[in-house]
Design a protein around this nucleic acid. Structure first.
Lengths: 187, 187
DNA sequence: ACCTGAACACCGTTCAAGT
DNA sequence: ACCTGAACACCGTTCAAGT
């Protein structure tokens, strides 16, 4: 029973990972503004200064979370099974919006104005990789750049409007069906 | 020359108005996170506690700014001169995106997740009034609710993607022309 | 009625010191 | 190498006290 000592738990363990895991949970529960470095240290059972061995600043931690978000997003897009361009395009739109709804505060952080991509190469790379996943398919489509941007704008706009509760979900609405319907509609 | 005294400037003046005016400038320059109540009090030449005579909290001040933003948005939409439904619809889309670009941080605040509309009737009314301006026209269109939401999503998405620099503006791009082109494109 | 001064309980961040 | 304890310069907010 060498593991049953009474000494504090995090002297050796992987503190960085523990911080990131706790931060992801905290982010989704409290939002970005509610994710304090001191709260985080408390949650993980460590001193207020300890996180600074692993992250230069609170912003650096947020950047790490955003990168994780883009990677998760990329993995999800890459895992779609649809084959024909049309089916794939519509599956991606639907997946994009559902990702935003399922990871609301992470999605907001990924697009936060506080995390400018210039001067953050890691974040820029993760974001570019995610968006390349999208253009692979929409670029194949009929209209070139403008059509691709139009499609992206519509999907992204629907995601943020739903996220912020701007689009009223009425009693009897099936949210997922409504998404598909809106994305299928013309303009 | 009764106004040339040396006594501090804001003993009597309209402090509330001065705070709001300074806050709007500060918001656009520093972003929401950079708008501190103490900074604001300093900028206006008043003690840190003085703003609390006029706003219950920092969030209450932000709410006031967001309401002003929605009113400005509504005024702008109401002032469009176009007459035929098609022209008006496209003018509104263009105006929507340009408003976002010209009032970046104010626009972000209007849609901020920190300002939930439930429990803030003033904000809800201002936002509803703004969105009614939109539905007046798009509701007339061919497709009913789903088509109106699709159009809104596209315009709003284009606004936030441009705002956050997600859509790369290439050398030689005319941003305004690109906006019109994207909004005119099909999906 | 409106504002000041001083205080309270917090932050993020730094730095010497411990193991 | 990694973490603690104590400190620094801030916050937002409250409250007695001034005019």
């Amino acid at each position: 029973m060498s593991t049953s000592t009474n000494s504090p738990p995090y002297h050796h363990g992987d503190l960085r990972r523990a911080l990131v895991d706790a931060a992801l949970v905290m982010l989704e529960r409290e939002g970005e503004a509610g994710l304090g470095l001191r709260d985080l240290a408390r949650a993980v059972g460590v001193s207020p200064a300890a996180p600074y061995r692993h992250f230069d600043s609170r912003i650096a931690l947020l950047e790490t979370l955003a990168v994780i978000g883009f990677q998760k997003f990329t993995r999800m897009m890459a895992s779609l099974q649809e084959t024909t361009p049309d089916q794939k395009l519509s599956a991606m739109g639907r997946a994009y919006v559902l990702f935003a709804l399922d990871n609301a505060n992470l999605f907001r952080l990924m697009f936060s104005a506080q995390l400018k991509r210039e001067g953050r190469p890691g974040l820029k790379m993760a974001a570019d990789a995610a968006f390349e996943t999208l253009q692979l398919v929409s670029g194949e489509g009929s209209g070139g750049r403008v059509a691709a941007l139009a499609a992206w704008a519509k999907v992204h706009g629907l995601a943020v409007l739903l996220l912020d509760g701007q689009i009223a979900i009425r009693a009897g609405d099936d949210t997922e069906a409504l998404i598909v319907e809106i994305l299928g509609r013309n303009p």
